[in-house]
Design a protein around this nucleic acid. Structure first.
Lengths: 195, 195
DNA sequence: AGAGTATCTGAACGCCCGTTCAATACAATC
DNA sequence: GATTGTATTGAACGGGCGTTCAGATACTCT
């Protein structure tokens, strides 16, 4: 046997990425073998190397694509210029996006330590880019007198950490729907930075 | 060679636990081999099995001991009966304890997925015990009219997630000392749940 | 129909894994 | 100083790891 009927790289490629993302998120990067990923896709391990030079590159590509998508989605949202409304939009956006990309979010926070220094720096830089967008909102609101935070950078990190927490407990079909969760977290975030 | 000079189980045991905690936190449970842990301690891999039946038990013992210590430390603190003062004490306690046990905290959040179902349930139960202590504070403050949270359980999880965030960026000798960090997070937490 | 290219297999490479265990050197006790 | 119990080695077990590559099959284009 060799090439399989119906095989096409633009089908197999995404399937490999999805399988890797799923398995890495579920069991951890180090605990998942190339053979397991291949089995999930239905190919032999050797075939993976048509799509990635090595295992670590597979991970860093997943992380970078996720961070790029996150930043692009927020930039595309283009909410109101008012800092308070912007903050509300950010809170709701962040929760919704993270719930829609739970596996990639999990990976982005858990598997950074499996990256070499240069790959680590790339992902860390993208994360900072995203954080800076929230920090700019807080600073603008502070300057306009709507917010009063003791430390802008810490408030940024505190809000993001708080919002990220949703992913650890949210289950589809649970007590609260996504809209209700957005309402609740917006209430807490708003008050936390209120003047 | 066999038994080594000066060898005693009450010395080697803690050294093995410390090495495992350190290496698991740094590289991840699955990425660390028994031989690496043994090398860090200065023994052969086989010697580890005098101290643990297997690798997973090593991890779950670390996690359970950490959670037990966390809960015992908070219960020993016995702060004021006033909900607002209790919440302030909790915020400062949680940050301080987590910074003092950064590796174990990291493990407790990252490596649960490497546990079998029964071990997972044990650690998850201890975590819930701890969360319930904060939830009780919030409920008491709510009943007394000092707090106004839209959802007590979510407020509990939101505050803990926010406080846990400190561990991801804190570095010894950084811009802010621990006391200042406690002040800043207490300010935000207080306002987030304020009536 | 035939050539060329894209896709995948299957076997192999050297290496490391978690775990077991008989042998053995030291410590503790008397 | 002899004896008993404790702590450890070092080798071995079967198996899985990431990665490479020659060969084989399926599509695509002319």
């Amino acid at each position: 046997m060799a090439r399989k009927p119906g095989s096409r790289s633009d089908i197999t490629g995404p399937r490999i990425r999805a399988a890797a993302r799923h398995l890495f998120a579920r069991h951890g990067f180090a605990a998942v073998s190339m053979r397991q990923i291949a089995a999930e896709v239905g190919v032999q391990a050797g075939a993976l190397y048509l799509y990635t030079p090595d295992k670590e590159t597979m991970l860093v590509d997943l992380l970078r694509d996720h961070m790029d998508e996150l930043i692009a989605a927020w930039d595309a949202a283009e909410p109101s210029a008012d800092p308070v409304e912007r903050l509300e939009a950010f809170v709701r956006f962040h929760i919704a996006f993270n719930l829609d990309h739970a596996e990639a979010v999990f990976l982005s926070y858990m598997e950074l330590r499996n990256l070499g220094p240069e790959n680590f720096a790339v992902i860390e830089g993208l994360r900072r880019d995203y954080e800076n967008r929230l920090e700019a909102i807080l600073r603008a609101g502070q300057d306009a007198g709507h917010f009063a935070v003791p430390d802008t950078k810490l408030a940024t990190l505190a809000i993001i950490a708080m919002l990220n927490g949703v992913n650890t407990w949210y289950r589809e079909g649970g007590r609260l729907g996504r809209a209700a969760i957005g309402d609740i977290y917006w209430d807490m975030a708003r008050k936390a930075v209120a003047a």
